[in-house]
Design a protein around this nucleic acid. Structure first.
Lengths: 211, 211
DNA sequence: GGTCGCCTCTCCCATCTGGGGGATGGCGTT
DNA sequence: AACGCCATCCCCCAGATGGGAGAGGCGACC
């Protein structure tokens, strides 16, 4: 077959779990049309290896030590706007999906995806075709209809999620308690929550905050 | 070497991510002294396959579809009190660790562990030696000093984490608002939290509640 | 220059929350 | 039977929270 002669898809894997890297690498290297050229265990490494190897596809976990997945997406796309990124993660909050795709990632899939789906996603992305499962795409669309939080509101939200009081939040952000309350109220409205605790629950579900 | 002649360690892998199973299977099967005899993608399957194959070691993810990891631990140990279970998960909350180990799991390690550590854990557990990394062991010990929540308190905690008000919680549990408040107060005391939102944060960190 | 969004701050007020008590009955263990 | 633990209920009350409305300063964008 002539297909065998064409260049293989060169893949870099970035995931902080050695087991996952092994699994992916085994799967990829078994395919005649693709190969793993490097593996990264954290975000910085992923960026460095991308620059050195200029792979066809970078398979990226969100949530890695040193440099969050989204930050890697941004930095890699700054370096090469045509970079082909496939996000592969366990997190299915609309915020993560929306952020990655809107920043220019070509694909997004969940770690519990079957082998075949992972491989076809890599092939799709390598040809610059977007890959998104229907459930993931649906979440991205859902998210678009929802209001975004401002940076300041995210600052406040994080503290709310830690269980801080308005007074405490005000102290930490060097603002008035009244202002903190204003931000919290705005957060409640945007997240359609009645209480701060519900806001935290919603924020968690959406992937607005971590841990 | 005579060692090659001895029976291989028979391993079952239970994890809902095909990628992780592949990675583990590849690692294990490369070892001369162990082999994977079956793989499960959910809790029920894990129990069924354990009964059928009676492996030397069951490597188990917490948080799987159909039957939570801890439930699998309990059921398998009911079937065979001498079963050797190695928990392998991303969750490092003291509660998960404590529950699994106190129910009789022989080992507990995190998915970001390096290959060598995973393999030595499997070997240790197969010989009925406990395996626990120092950080994991430390958390289990920490947890022992902390008060446990009662079942009812856990019911309430779950609703608190969803952002429900005391009144709402009372309605859902068919109790008085006053009683709901009593439970919440008790939860706050036990978790050493000042507000319900902080209680939720602590509970999350400890693995008392999921998602 | 005007408009818009964001951050900041202010005031009022009803309600919820959390801390301090105490009390009852059930249920299992000793 | 006596004990402890738990779940259930009750009281009071200070302080935090959430809802509503408004307003000034500032930078970005048109």
């Amino acid at each position: 077959m002539a297909a065998v002669l064409q260049k293989k898809i060169r893949v870099i894997l970035a995931d902080d779990h050695p087991v996952v890297r092994d699994g992916l690498a085994a799967m990829v290297n078994q395919q005649p049309d693709m190969e793993v050229v490097a593996e990264a265990g954290d975000g910085e490494e992923a960026i460095a290896l991308y620059q050195r190897h200029q792979p066809d596809v970078l398979v990226l976990d969100l949530r890695m030590p040193k440099c969050d997945g989204l930050a890697v997406v941004q930095r890699v796309l700054e370096i090469n706007p045509k970079a082909r990124l496939l996000i592969m993660t366990t997190y299915d909050g609309d915020e993560d999906i929306f952020q990655c795709l809107s920043h220019g990632a070509k694909g997004y899939l969940l770690k519990d995806a079957p082998r075949q789906e992972i491989l076809s996603a890599i092939r799709a992305v390598s040809e610059d075709r977007p890959y998104t499962s229907s459930t993931v795409a649906a979440k991205a669309l859902q998210r678009m209809a929802k209001p975004s939080l401002t940076e300041r509101e995210l600052d406040v939200l994080e503290l709310v999620a830690q269980g801080r009081s308005n007074k405490d939040i005000a102290r930490r952000l060097s603002i008035t308690e009244g202002t903190a309350k204003t931000h919290v109220k705005s957060i409640l409205t945007k997240l359609d929550a009645i209480s701060r605790t519900e806001a935290v629950a919603v924020a968690h579900k959406r992937g607005l905050i971590r841990l």
